[in-house]
Design a binder for these strands. Structure first.
Length: 277
DNA sequence: CGAGTTTGACCAGCGC
DNA sequence: GCGCTGGTCAAACTCG
């Protein structure tokens, strides 16, 4: 499913390459999602094909069989168990509702050795699931900040094990935790953007260069959307139009959006555009 | 000892 | 309606 297609633009970060992932934009999210980074890349949203429907041998009955077969273990703490279950159920229901609602999602592929990229936020792993037909499991992370409900899925691409597929879900409601921490010689300048900058230790200069170029001398794929917009392509009124519109706004708002809420800002934050080095 | 990870179990949604 | 799958929870465990 990962379309690291031919001619697909990517950021060459040395060991890490960041590709936009075309296949994981969900309809509901597409409307709202501030895709500054994607837009800069000139990547178009596609309807989701979602993860490949494959069959992974461990899934079917590893967990469920025990539960279904019972194995007489439910007898032990019947009440306690029930209580737990109830509690969990309630909680689950609520959280599910929340997550199923309008949660902006964005996915991209990163060519990287490491699975979990350092994006400046603190993540806590809360789950891991085997991916069908893939030897690599999918990991689920959640922002450790208590009031922040941003989630992140990370999985290694089966077709290209050197690629990591990262999916962000939600928006951070807080500044980067690492901002607080003084970074290698970087003087804490005053602007918020520059603070964000501090929080991104792994950001490669290529990205900065690229974005500078985007702002100064637009390149082919980066400006494609602008071109489309100027050509009035987004004046239809189908659903896609909504997406286009929001994208337009995103792009026009550009740094503004990224400044505060961008999802991919988590990885490629606003300071890229602001070139604060 | 607190924070983070692992892992088995569970539920909801979706496709058949 | 049923089974499969993805996503999440939370107890147990590990690590610093």
């Amino acid at each position: 499913m990962e379309n690291i297609g031919v001619g697909m633009p990517f950021y060459d970060l040395g060991q890490t390459r960041v590709y936009p992932l075309l296949s994981d934009f969900h309809d509901l999210s597409a409307e709202r999602y501030p895709v500054g980074f994607m837009d800069l890349l000139g990547v178009h949203r596609h309807t989701p094909t979602h993860t490949p429907l494959m069959h992974f041998p461990t899934t079917p009955n590893s967990s469920s069989s025990e539960a279904v077969n019972g194995d007489d273990e439910e007898e032990e703490d019947g009440e306690e168990q029930q209580h737990k279950t109830k509690k969990r159920f309630k909680f689950t229901k609520m959280s599910r509702k929340q997550t199923k609602k309008k949660v902006p999602k964005v996915s991209f592929i990163t060519r990287s050795e490491v699975l979990h990229l350092d994006d400046g936020y603190k993540w806590r792993k809360y789950g891991q699931k085997p991916v069908k037909d893939s030897p690599f499991p999918r990991n689920y992370y959640r922002c450790t900040t208590t009031w922040c409900d941003v989630k992140k899925r990370v999985e290694r691409s089966f077709s290209d094990p050197s690629s990591v597929i990262t999916t962000y879900e939600g928006q951070h409601t807080h500044p980067r935790p690492l901002l607080i921490m003084p970074k290698e010689g970087s003087s804490p300048s005053n602007g918020s953007a520059s603070r964000a900058h501090i929080g991104l230790p792994t950001l490669p200069p290529q990205l900065l260069d690229y974005n500078n170029q985007q702002q100064q001398a637009p390149s082919s794929f980066g400006t494609e959307y602008i071109n489309r917009q100027e050509k009035g392509i987004n004046h239809d009124d189908d659903d896609d139009h909504v997406v286009k519109k929001s994208r337009t706004r995103d792009l026009l708002d550009g740094a503004g959006l990224l400044k505060d809420h961008g999802l991919l800002q988590d990885v490629v934050p606003s300071h890229i555009i602001k070139e604060e080095y």
